[in-house]
Amino acid sequence: MATGGRRGAAAAPLLVAVAALLLGAAGHLYPGEVCPGMDIRNNLTRLHELENCSVIEGHLQILLMFKTRPEDFRDLSFPKLIMITDYLLLFRVYGLESLKDLFPNLTVIRGSRLFFNYALVIFEMVHLKELGLYNLMNITRGSVRIEKNNELCYLATIDWSRILDSVEDNYIVLNKDDNEECGDICPGTAKGKTNCPATVINGQFVERCWTHSHCQKVCPTICKSHGCTAEGLCCHSECLGNCSQPDDPTKCVACRNFYLDGRCVETCPPPYYHFQDWRCVNFSFCQDLHHKCKNSRRQGCHQYVIHNNKCIPECPSGYTMNSSNLLCTPCLGPCPKVCHLLEGEKTIDSVTSAQELRGCTVINGSLIINIRGGNNLAAELEANLGLIEEISGYLKIRRSYALVSLSFFRKLRLIRGETLEIGNYSFYALDNQNLRQLWDWSKHNLTITQGKLFFHYNPKLCLSEIHKMEEVSGTKGRQERNDIALKTNGDQASCENELLKFSYIRTSFDKI
């Protein structure tokens, strides 16, 4: 039985969820670079991206490699990797027998973001014989899940209580170790020597080791999670996991709180800001991140802002960003909400898709409305799209047979046209069989910064309504002859009103 693990408890099935942008060198404390989270699957090609990484700022997932063999891993080693800020997950990587050479110096898994409450997941690794993470000293947050690894031993010899604050939620089941077939031998045991430290858990006094050649490092209890030197002297209180010299914040392997210019500090002093819960960055760093993602459509890219001495992905609820200094300031009234469309555009074809934009005031991208039916549609669209004030790209209304009016965009005031449909149009209306009105132009103002209007096959939309939009939106004169079809717009509506004058002759039985 794995020490510190839980057996036999019912657990939810383990679901495996399925960018080499360097964020800056980590400095003297770390020998390499800070790398983003990685999802490495199918083959070993991307694994080489770990070569210079000291910190993975995010998670590391290595999974679904069915053609790899043990010899493929023999020359692979990433000794610079010290810390993973989120979680480490391995799933069905064939041929991998140990992690001792792959990650010989991995010391800390912070667990800032977890995989279903777990910071370390080893699942269905069919050839893994031992973990071998002999320098792993601290899992700051989260638990361990090690399950269905039929060859995995050296679990009962690990004292997880020396690595985690609590072992109650560890789930370590259905491994070879369960069948008591392992016969784990710690260093020196074969020669009758006791080389590794022994600890007591559940009444068992057991030597602690990761492999037959690597003991588990056990520091004096007084050192807590700070770690200790090879001689057993406690590291500085700002260290986490390990250090090369005692009581020196510049000799830590990793930091308990924050890293700044080669030393570990309790908090980031001005003019620095907390970033990702582990390091200090200056304003320029946060500003660069903001600008890199301002026009990016890459998933996970955030326009970072500053709030409460932190550089964070977005302002919290009730705050909006001051564009001059990136500071989050309290909103006066309802907060603006910028919604970034991942692929640059979004099609609204149902109430469900409209709900995804609920509360958005600025759309960074283009909207395509293609709704053919739905219950209580006008009210639903207004509830979900009615706060949109600005669209950076274009607005396209296409084959939306259920629409009679666009009044559900009740606050839309600006279409920038930074991206144009077919390279020309910022407003595009095609084949809307029941569209009769755009907006009530006596109450609604709309500016279209650039781009043209396109109207074709809107049989109940009168040309007068379209011409009014040209005047109000500032697009009059931009359109070419064929942009607004004269014969297919309003051709099934009563669009022309003329005053009919009647004269009559009164007659009676005795007068003409």
Rank of each mutant, 00 (worst) to 15 (best):
H28I: 02
H28G: 02
Y30K: 00
E33T: 07
P36A: 13
G37A: 15
M38R: 05
M38H: 11
D39W: 04
D39P: 02
R41M: 03
N42A: 12
N42Y: 11
N43M: 08
L44A: 11
T45F: 06
R46T: 01
R46A: 15
E49I: 15
E49Q: 09
E49S: 14
E49L: 11
E49D: 12
E51L: 04
N52A: 10
C53I: 04
C53W: 00
G58K: 00
L60H: 00
L60Q: 00
Q61P: 01
Q61F: 06
Q61Y: 03
Q61M: 12
F66K: 05
F66Q: 08
F66A: 15
K67A: 04
T68P: 04
P70A: 10
E71H: 02
D72V: 15
D72P: 15
D72T: 04
F73K: 04
R74Q: 06
R74G: 02
D75L: 10
D75Q: 11
D75C: 04
D75F: 04
S77I: 10
S77W: 07
F78K: 02
P79H: 04
P79F: 04
P79E: 12
P79Y: 10
K80L: 10
K80M: 12
K80Q: 07
L81T: 04
L81K: 00
I82F: 12
I82E: 07
I82C: 05
M83F: 04
T85M: 09
D86H: 15
D86I: 01
L88Q: 01
L88A: 01
L89I: 05
L90V: 12
L90W: 06
R92V: 06
R92L: 07
V93F: 07
Y94R: 13
G95H: 11
G95K: 08
G95T: 02
L96F: 03
E97P: 06
E97G: 13
S98R: 03
L99E: 00
K100I: 07
L102M: 14
L102G: 03
P104I: 01
P104N: 01
P104Q: 01
N105D: 13
N105A: 07
L106Q: 00
L106Y: 00
T107I: 15
I109G: 00
R110K: 13
R110I: 11
R110M: 10
R110S: 10
S112D: 10
S112K: 09
R113A: 03
F115Q: 04
F115A: 12
F115Y: 04
F116I: 09
F116R: 08
N117F: 10
N117V: 10
Y118F: 13
L120G: 00
V121N: 04
F123P: 00
F123S: 12
F123Y: 15
F123I: 03
E124V: 03
E124P: 00
M125T: 14
M125G: 03
H127D: 07
H127N: 04
H127A: 11
L128G: 01
K129S: 08
K129N: 06
E130G: 04
E130T: 08
E130S: 09
L133P: 01
L133E: 00
Y134D: 11
Y134A: 08
N135T: 10
L136Q: 02
L136K: 00
L136G: 01
M137F: 08
N138V: 04
N138S: 13
I139H: 00
I139V: 08
I139N: 00
T140L: 07
T140I: 05
T140A: 10
G142A: 01
G142S: 02
S143L: 10
S143A: 11
S143C: 10
V144K: 00
V144W: 00
R145L: 12
I146V: 08
E147G: 06
K148T: 04
K148W: 09
K148P: 01
N149S: 10
N149L: 00
N150M: 03
N150T: 07
N150L: 09
N150E: 10
N150S: 11
C153Q: 07
C153A: 04
L155K: 04
A156N: 15
T157H: 09
T157W: 09
I158T: 10
W160L: 06
W160I: 01
W160G: 01
S161G: 10
R162L: 07
I163W: 01
D165S: 11
D165C: 04
V167L: 13
V167D: 04
E168T: 07
D169C: 09
N170E: 05
I172F: 03
L174S: 13
N175Y: 06
K176D: 05
D177W: 05
D177A: 10
D177S: 02
D178E: 10
D178F: 11
D178A: 13
N179A: 05
N179F: 12
N179L: 07
N179Y: 04
E180Q: 09
D184H: 06
D184E: 14
D184F: 05
C186S: 03
P187E: 13
P187G: 11
G188S: 08
T189Q: 12
A190C: 03
A190E: 04
K191C: 05
G192H: 07
K193R: 08
T194H: 14
T194F: 14
C196E: 05
C196F: 14
C196G: 08
V200F: 12
N202F: 04
G203P: 05
G203Y: 14
Q204G: 15
V206A: 04
E207R: 12
C209R: 04
C209T: 03
C209G: 10
W210R: 05
W210Y: 04
H212Q: 13
S213I: 09
H214V: 11
H214P: 05
Q216L: 06
K217N: 11
V218S: 07
V218D: 06
P220W: 15
T221P: 04
T221R: 07
I222A: 09
I222M: 09
C223K: 01
C223T: 01
K224D: 13
K224F: 04
S225F: 13
S225K: 10
H226G: 13
H226L: 12
H226I: 08
A230M: 15
E231T: 09
E231W: 05
G232L: 04
C235M: 00
C235W: 01
C235S: 00
C235V: 00
H236I: 02
H236N: 07
S237D: 13
S237C: 10
E238Y: 04
E238P: 00
E238D: 11
E238A: 10
C239S: 00
C239G: 01
L240Y: 11
G241V: 07
G241T: 07
N242G: 06
C243N: 00
C243V: 00
Q245F: 11
P246I: 09
D247L: 10
D247Y: 12
D248H: 06
D248S: 07
D248A: 05
P249N: 04
P249Y: 04
P249I: 06
P249M: 03
P249S: 06
T250N: 05
T250I: 07
T250A: 12
K251L: 10
K251C: 05
C252P: 03
C255F: 00
R256L: 09
F258I: 01
D261I: 06
G262D: 14
R263Q: 03
C264P: 00
C264R: 00
V265N: 01
V265I: 09
E266K: 00
C268P: 00
C268Q: 00
P269W: 07
P269C: 01
P270V: 07
P271Y: 07
P271V: 07
Y272M: 15
Y272K: 08
Y273A: 04
Y273H: 09
Y273I: 02
H274L: 11
F275N: 02
F275H: 12
Q276L: 06
Q276M: 13
Q276I: 04
D277K: 14
W278C: 02
C280S: 00
C280F: 01
C280H: 00
V281K: 02
N282D: 08
F283D: 07
S284V: 04
S284A: 11
F285A: 08
F285L: 13
F285E: 08
C286V: 08
Q287W: 13
D288R: 15
D288Y: 12
D288M: 06
D288S: 04
L289V: 13
H290R: 09
H290L: 05
H291V: 08
K294V: 09
K294P: 13
N295L: 09
N295I: 15
S296E: 04
S296V: 06
S296Y: 06
S296L: 06
S296I: 09
R298I: 08
G300V: 10
G300L: 11
H302K: 11
V305A: 06
V305S: 08
V305P: 03
I306E: 13
N308D: 07
N309V: 06
N309Q: 12
N309Y: 04
P313R: 13
P316N: 04
P316G: 01
S317T: 13
S317M: 14
S317Q: 07
G318Q: 08
G318R: 05
T320R: 14
M321H: 05
N322W: 06
S323P: 14
N325K: 05
L327Y: 15
C328A: 01
G333V: 04
P334L: 12
C335L: 04
P336V: 11
